[in-house]
Design a protein around this nucleic acid. Structure first.
Lengths: 338, 338
DNA sequence: TTAGGTTATGCTCAGGATAAGTATAAGCCA
DNA sequence: TGGCTTATACTTATCCTGAGCATAACCTAA
């Protein structure tokens, strides 16, 4: 199966990036003070508690944890991991690089601070956080209220987003452009009988940004009344968060990463709730169980969940063996077996 | 469907990275000359000609095109694109960021040159290349001879790789480690009745690297006789290439990016050959056609291929409309539709 | 004690997607 | 014209997936 690409599916986040190669890339390794820059790490740290997806934030929930890096430890990865483990008291189960942003407009201090931001996605658990400093866990739907479809499409979609996006589309100079704008909105937000695609988090954010419905897009000329709900963040941290959510929503479908967010033992419903929290939509219970079984991702611990409503559920644990047994599947080409 | 993760599936490429955060990330934006670094762009530019996948190389096919970047144009992306288009005389259809590598060991000049390499994947076509400079197109299987399974498993797999990986496994200190090593090799290379998974390009390269069967892994102590065939590259360019190939092999399965590599009009067999070239394995012809049809990715041009052997084939073109019509599908969760 | 609420778990069923193969068509060339 | 090559149409069996029914097992309040 081969599907859609460039225009819509582009995961490129430096839309308003401001750097570039200086002419043809040459094979140059000479450190040149003229092109010295700085680099920051930005982390999207995810946990799920009580069926709610959370991210670690600083600065009064207005920024993602971030900081400069220096050449010291063994790798970007390991440094991030060590730092997070110190903060949360829990091993960081999974870390992956998200995207490297590069622009001079990001911090808002003019053209001078040339820097790149290397962002990472990390999965952990909220419990036992050594919350000494300014770090907090914030629900990620605070930042993207339109992304939670677990109880059906959120009302603000029909009430606010749809009319404002339609207005934005209509404000385009030509009829063709108007149609094109509205079509993009309809596809990414699932208007007009289209399916809601929970993976398009970044595209939706960027569309809203382009439509100037996002505070970050209109820093100066704050016409707050016409904006869209959702807590803003420093610089482009919300864009980075959108990138992380999108990546995670895609990933849980083909890699068993949810388990990094679960306690050692859990019921299938708890597992399901976590998946639903991330995906922002509900799954079919029986089919979900069937999937878990036939993929042999979990095994019965023999124990039974205590203090629960309804029929008590068996407790399961992740079968770490699957990681060793098989590689990821993932074929959608009509491969021939000759 | 949820599948395997951390150990094997990790796409982290800075295994021998040497940078790190300095303690807890702080929210600091002050440019600090102490942590000034440099950044390079590295490009994996892919084309398919005569059914062979090619990449653009420089330095006598020993390096990927790369260069320093400066803060000048509008974005990393656009600079890369402009440069490539000048070089090839063709629009760069598709560009996506691959990975950012950061280590001081990469260039081999000691601990001083702190730098990051931001790598990109780009799709284009070979024809009409304004090949003025040192740039060439090299077949990518020159660098990874074990990755081409179009004519069945390459013989060097059984003849060379298997025994050497087995020897490497046996050289582990403990029995448990020996088993673990061999299992990893078996999974990534498809030994012992396991399926060959063409997407594990990077994992295979890293395993060979770890087993010291790759020239880049043994720069000094060159015991060439025990190495594995495949042309080496500067620094970790071959690792970057592996990352790009892996990404592309995964991507052609759910996004219509192959068309970026095709001429405007093509026969279904030509299209199939391109897919096979990238995937490194054959696909079932009839099923491939059915897939193209039912996904409505192509449309009949009315024309017929000339000067061909056998029954003449219809010429098709990519239906660019699909990009506008629908977003990417991609659900493997038992979503409920209530 | 029992009705009713809640969650767990087993099973069925239809439709669609997939892998593989058979059959036929339409060119070319010796 | 027979044989070679590629194109294209169909068939078949199997598996996967979405959806729903039915029952089990626990609790609480009437």
């Amino acid at each position: 199966m081969l599907a859609a690409s460039t225009a819509i599916a582009s995961h490129d986040c430096n839309r308003n990036g401001l750097l570039d190669v200086a002419g043809p890339p040459r094979k140059t390794k000479t450190p040149d003070s003229r092109r010295a820059i700085t680099a920051d790490l930005v982390a999207v740290l995810v946990a799920v508690t009580d069926g709610q997806p959370k991210i670690m934030t600083i600065a009064n929930a207005g920024a993602l944890p971030s900081g400069p890096f220096e050449f010291k430890h063994r790798s970007l990865q390991s440094g991030l991991r060590a730092w997070v483990e110190a903060q949360t008291g829990h091993p960081l189960g999974y870390v992956e690089q998200l995207y490297t942003f590069a622009d001079r407009g990001r911090t808002g201090d003019g053209p001078s601070p040339h820097s790149v931001s290397i962002s990472y996605l990390g999965l952990t658990r909220e419990d036992q956080v050594a919350d000494g400093a300014s770090a907090h866990w914030s629900g990620w739907y605070d930042y993207f209220p339109w992304e939670d479809h677990r109880e059906g499409p959120p009302s603000l979609l029909a009430k606010l987003l749809t009319p404002r996006l339609r207005a934005w589309a209509k404000s385009a100079p030509s009829a063709a452009l108007q149609r094109e704008r509205w079509q993009r909105a309809a596809i990414t937000f699932g208007f007009e009988d289209r399916e809601w695609n929970e993976e398009l988090v970044l595209q939706r954010y960027e569309l809203l940004f382009e439509a100037a419905l996002i505070p970050e897009a209109v820093r100066e000329s704050g016409n707050a009344a016409t904006l869209v709900p959702g807590r803003p963040m420093t610089a482009d941290h919300r864009r980075i968060l959108a990138t992380g959510i999108a990546r995670l929503r895609a990933k849980i479908k083909y890699r068993p990463v949810v388990f990094e967010l679960m306690p050692a033992e859990f019921t299938l419903l708890q597992l399901q709730r976590s998946v639903e929290a991330l995906a922002g939509r509900l799954v079919h219970k029986q089919n979900f169980r069937r999937l878990m079984e036939q993929q042999q991702l979990v095994e019965d611990t023999g124990a039974i969940a205590a203090d629960t409503v309804g029929r008590p559920a068996k407790l399961f644990r992740f079968r770490h063996a699957v990681l060793a047994e098989r590689a990821v599947a993932g074929t959608k080409l009509p491969l021939s077996r000759t």
